[in-house]
Design a binder for these strands. Structure first.
Lengths: 275, 275
DNA sequence: GGAGCGCTGTATCGTATGTTACGTATTTTG
DNA sequence: CAAAATACGTAACATACGATACAGCGCTCC
């Protein structure tokens, strides 16, 4: 079973003529970066001519150079997706069903936060804490609970936080209350829901700032979003995992709380008093 | 100090017009692979036009697209050289607000699963998959979304799954439908809610099997619970974190799904047909 | 409400890049 | 050692790609 181009090369390097073998060795030496550059650069690095490079990739079974490059990119992408899982995945001695799931989830979180800068989160937190206007939250079929979770917390520390629930017609009518001072937090992962997209579009047209929690493939709502948080959702299960997004949400809640500390503390004390 | 293009983007994304921001977000979402492809592919993925992509890279300070790609490649190459050094999101030497939160959450999960045996999870999953009776789910003030999340998934793969929502009187009356063939999944973390405890007790008296998701200090409901899942909730924030419980819930959902594979698959197909 | 500015997409252009044809060099084989 | 076959590079070609000019549109600010 040959699963990488490197193996493919190792397999066939014996049958190659001198020039192509040099190409192969050069590629292996700095795998796979050289293969992502142009034919000219590749050939220069290998000290052979361009056609030799092309004959080399042809011998590997590729129709043309672009096809070869695409393969390399896919391979790289797969590696980058789960660096830890690939490199240091302990075969889970117990072999239980739990470990792979947990490992994947942990990796998803690390990966999600790797693509998420402190600054970006801080920006969103600031925007949510500003409270120039109202804050609306809504989610899709499986992500609506995340919207609820976030709304439940935000509503404690600031006024004018609304979770949009129930029938589509219900929250669609709330559009009339929304303006450019307001923020709309949307959770939407595959399969993306048309109704949400339409809603986001309308809100966007009204000048509402949209904060989108989505997966790495980006919901079409990203079109209209001021801020996009792309979480990893792939796990060895029949379902996608929203855990990474959940953690981002909690982080955001924490950040907003910190920014509102002064106001929030007073508000919480007041609330305690009401019980 | 800006050492990676990702940081550069995070730094300037605030000053970008909508189109370029979309480009930035798409790049970050699947960083850096999209940036290695052609302008046309990049623009298609971002849903903008080619010139917008070029203006985007220009704004980042690159003379042309090739220079931009070369930078990305160099970055990638460096990363591949030493996988240990993660250039993307540096360990936050500033002590940013993100890292401690994430670290604590990850640690919570590991710790939670350390005290949770495969067998225990498997038992619960089996019980939930048996479907001799009905499944009810309910949560507290901040954990109700977790109950909803779990209910939303379970309801897809099996019948008779009910999330108890709304006013206390509403779900209290549902007690009459519950018997010893049924399962009640309760989420309850500090501060434990009296109403939930009373509800759990009554359900227990009726012979309902209770699966409890709680924190490490154990809700008083643990008295009545057949299965107790204790998750770590402490994080450096004003709030407790339900992330660990969330992940356990997802794991459980996955396990139940696997057990119901045959039935579930048919059911899901049937559901698709109904749309 | 009107004028100005900035953003964005369409269409066009030039060029860098992959590709191929062909001639020369090198190796192989009888 | 001769002749054929294979390998390799030079050079010309075609195409796909990045770059740019321009016009339309929406937005902001007066």
């Amino acid at each position: 079973m040959i699963s990488s181009i490197a193996e493919l090369i190792a397999d066939r390097i014996g049958t190659m003529p001198a020039g192509e073998r040099r190409a192969a060795q050069t590629l292996i030496a700095s795998y796979p970066m050289i293969g992502l550059k142009t034919v000219a650069e590749f050939s220069a690095a290998a000290g052979v001519s361009s056609p030799t490079i092309l004959r080399f990739v042809a011998r590997l079974g590729f129709q043309n150079y672009s096809e070869f490059q695409s393969s390399l990119q896919d391979e790289l992408a797969a590696q980058l997706q789960s660096p830890a899982i690939r490199t240091l995945n302990p075969p889970s001695p117990n072999g239980g069903t739990v470990s792979p799931m947990l490992e994947a989830t942990l990796e998803n979180m690390r990966e999600t936060f790797r693509h998420l800068s402190d600054k970006q989160l801080a920006d969103i937190a600031t925007r949510l804490a500003e409270r120039r206007g109202k804050t609306f939250l809504i989610g899709g079929r499986f992500t609506d609970p995340l919207a609820r979770y976030m709304a439940a917390h935000l509503a404690v520390i600031q006024p004018d936080v609304f979770h949009l629930a129930g029938q589509e017609s219900m929250w669609r009518d709330r559009l009339i209350d929304m303006g450019k001072r307001d923020v709309l937090v949307i959770f939407d992962i595959r399969r993306y829901q048309d109704s949400l997209v339409r809603f986001a579009e309308k809100a966007h047209q009204r000048g509402v700032q949209i904060v989108l929690f989505t997966d790495q493939w980006l919901s079409p709502i990203a079109r209209f979003a001021r801020h996009v948080i792309a979480g990893r959702t792939a796990v060895p299960s029949a379902w996608d995992s929203s855990a990474a997004l959940f953690v981002v949400a909690e982080t955001l809640i924490g950040a907003v709380t910190r920014q509102l500390e002064a106001d929030g503390a007073r508000r919480i004390r007041e609330m305690e008093g009401l019980r």
